[in-house]
Write a protein that binds this DNA or RNA. Structure first.
Length: 195
DNA sequence: CGCCGGATTTAA
DNA sequence: TAAATCCGGCGA
């Protein structure tokens, strides 16, 4: 997937609508956020290359997984040429197949929310953990990324949970979502944009 | 080596 | 609005 080699904010838009598959579970990506290299004060790459963010510097199409708030795994798709750090956080998805498996992985007994709204739920639905860090999403077997038809309408707005970043970086509208999906958090903060 | 705080979720 | 809960990054 060549588009993953471009800037993170471009790759992020291209990832919307694509599928993430593992075993019997198929998710359709509905919400993403782009994170750049050391120049992006909101990015994990802001302090340079470390053991944790190493996959961000690798080739595009790999997974970058990290543990947050002591309980959640976050799935990123590495973008940009090898040697540059950038990634796209998968923030939301719809369950296309394998709903039973997804629900069985939920901690709470609530079977209500069908969509995976929020990055923690996305990784949980796919049953991911640190063993998938660095996994090649373009290779068959295991966790895979698959192309899908483009969206009809896209929304964009500022990224969430980055109050520690510079005001300029907080203002960047690098959060993107499918306007036609309900698997999108805080829709009111988003506005329509052209592709 | 110890401390601080985070790309979150959930329930009250 | 806060608690759950862990590890990375930074300063000492």
């Amino acid at each position: 997937m060549r588009h993953l080699a471009g800037p993170a904010e471009v790759a992020a838009q291209a990832l919307l609508g694509q599928h993430l598959t593992r075993e019997d579970v198929i998710l359709r990506i509905t919400e993403v956020e782009a994170y750049g290299g050391p120049e992006d004060s909101a990015s994990h790459a802001r302090h340079g290359r470390t053991a944790r963010n190493g996959p961000m510097w690798g080739p595009p199409g790999r997974a970058y997984l990290y543990f947050c708030y002591g309980m959640h795994w976050m799935l990123n798709v590495v973008t940009g040429p090898e040697g540059t750090a950038a990634a796209v956080l998968i923030r939301g998805a719809e369950v296309v197949a394998g709903l039973e498996t997804v629900l069985s992985r939920r901690k709470t007994g609530k079977a209500t929310p069908q969509p995976c709204t929020g990055p923690g739920k996305v990784a949980q639905a796919l049953g991911l953990d640190r063993t998938f860090d660095g996994h090649d999403l373009l290779a068959p077997g295991g966790l895979e990324l698959r192309p899908a038809p483009p969206l009809a309408q896209m929304l964009a707005g500022p990224r969430l949970g980055i109050g520690f970043a510079s005001l300029d970086d907080q203002a960047r509208r690098w959060r993107f979502a499918d306007a036609d999906s309900r698997a999108v958090l805080l829709r009111k903060a988003l506005t329509p944009v052209q592709f």
